[in-house]
C-alpha cells in the first residue's frame, strides 16, 4: 500500500494537508496527536501587518457546513517568523506550507520574500481568493489578468514551489488557473470558500457582522470536486484539491478528479482528530477499492 505523493518535487508521506485557517500553526493540534503523521499542513494566512480581522459574529452555521468571515486574523509576517514558527518547529518536523494573503501586489511580494528565507517552509500557498476582506484577497483571484500579475510578481522573489489558491466565485475557474500557470505557478489549490449569507429572522439582520462570509463544509464537496476536475483537465501543473473533504472516501474521489494532494479544512473544526483518522482509514478504503498506490488514481475518473 503506497500512500506517498510528490507535490512540486517534495515527497509527502500521504496526501493529507490541513487547510489554512483551520489548523493554526499546528501546536494546538499537537497537544492531541503527533501531527507528523500529516503529509504537511498549511498554516494560518499571513499578511504584512497584524490583523484583528472582522467584527464578531463571524461564524454562522448552515446545513452541511458553516459560513466564516474571520477576515485573516494573524500576527503579521514578522511575528509569524519570530514567534509562531519557532513554536511550530518544536512539534512539526516536515516541510510546512506557508499561506500568504495581501491587499496589494507589494504586500504579497514583501510577505513572500520574507517567508522565502525560512528554511522549513516547503511551499508557499498564495491566497488570491479570500472572500472576507475588501480591496484585496479575492479581488486578485477573480480576474485572470490580476491573478497572473500577482503570480508573476511573487515568482520573482522565491524559488520555493508556489501554489496559487483559487476562488470558486468566478465564471470560469480554468481561465484563472491557466493564467497563473502561464506566469510561473508550480501548482494550484482549490477551492477556497463560496460566498454566502445567512439572515436572523428575529432581527432581520445578517447573522455575520460582515454580512457575507465564505461557505465551507461537506455540502460544498460536489462543487469542489467538479472544479478540481475541470482545472485538472485545463492545466499541466499539479492540483491540490479541497472543499468539503470529510472522509478517506472523499480523499479518493478528490484524487480521482485530479488532485495530487488533498487539503482538509472545516472538518478539523468539528472533529479535531479528523486528519489523523482519515490517514488511518486510507489503507482500508484503498484496499476496498483495489488501489495499491494513491498516485495511480490521480485524475483517473473515467
Amino acid at each position: 500500500m503506497e500512500l506517498s505523493v510528490n507535490l512540486c518535487g517534495i515527497t509527502l508521506d500521504n496526501p493529507i494537508i490541513p487547510a489554512s485557517g483551520t489548523f493554526g500553526y499546528g501546536y494546538e493540534f499537537a497537544e492531541l496527536y503527533d501531527i507528523n503523521v500529516l503529509g504537511t499542513f498549511s498554516f494560518k494566512g499571513t499578511t504584512r501587518e497584524t490583523r484583528y480581522g472582522n467584527p464578531t459574529p463571524r461564524i454562522a452555521e448552515c446545513t452541511g457546513g458553516l459560513l466564516n468571515a474571520v477576515g485573516l486574523q494573524n500576527p503579521g509576517v514578522d511575528r509569524v517568523i519570530s514567534e509562531e514558527l519557532p513554536k511550530m518547529r518544536q512539534v512539526f518536523h516536515k516541510p510546512v506550507m506557508a499561506n500568504v494573503s495581501g491587499f496589494s501586489i507589494d504586500e504579497y511580494v514583501e510577505v513572500v520574500s520574507k517567508l522565502d528565507k525560512v528554511e522549513d517552509i516547503g511551499w508557499i500557498e498564495v491566497n488570491i481568493s479570500c472572500p472576507n476582506v475588501h480591496g484585496g484577497g479575492m479581488s486578485f483571484g477573480t480576474d485572470p489578468v490580476c491573478a497572473g500579475e500577482v503570480t508573476k510578481a511573487v515568482r520573482r522573489v522565491t524559488e520555493k514551489p508556489l501554489v496559487i489558491k483559487l476562488s470558486p466565485n468566478v465564471t470560469d475557474i480554468t481561465q484563472i488557473a491557466r493564467a497563473v500557470e502561464s506566469e510561473g505557478a508550480d501548482a494550484v489549490s482549490l477551492i477556497n470558500t463560496l460566498v454566502g449569507m445567512r439572515i436572523n429572522l428575529n432581527t432581520r439582520k445578517p447573522i455575520l457582522a460582515n454580512r457575507t462570509g465564505g461557505f465551507s463544509g461537506s455540502a460544498v464537496f460536489p462543487v469542489a470536486l467538479n472544479m478540481v476536475n475541470k482545472v485538472y483537465n485545463a492545466v499541466k501543473i499539479p492540483v491540490v484539491g479541497m472543499g468539503g473533504v470529510s472522509s478517506a472516501e472523499d480523499v479518493l474521489e478528490m484524487m480521482m478528479a485530479g488532485a495530487t494532494a488533498v487539503e482538509i479544512g472545516s472538518m478539523n473544526l468539528v472533529n479535531p482528530y479528523a486528519c489523523k483518522e482519515i490517514i488511518e482509514d486510507l489503507p482500508k478504503v484503498m484496499a476496498k477499492y483495489r488501489v495499491d498506490k494513491l498516485t495511480d488514481i490521480i485524475g483517473g475518473v473515467i
Binding site: 458553516l66 447573522i207 478539523n268
Partner: peptide, 22 residues
C-alpha cells in the same frame, strides 16, 4: 459568550479585542 466555530482555538471565529491583546 460568542458564536464559535471549533471551540478549541483553531478557527479564530470568536476572537475579541481586550486591553491585553486579541
Amino acid at each position: 459568550e460568542e458564536r464559535m466555530g471549533c471551540g478549541f482555538g483553531a478557527c479564530m471565529g470568536c476572537t475579541c479585542e481586550t486591553l491585553t491583546g486579541y
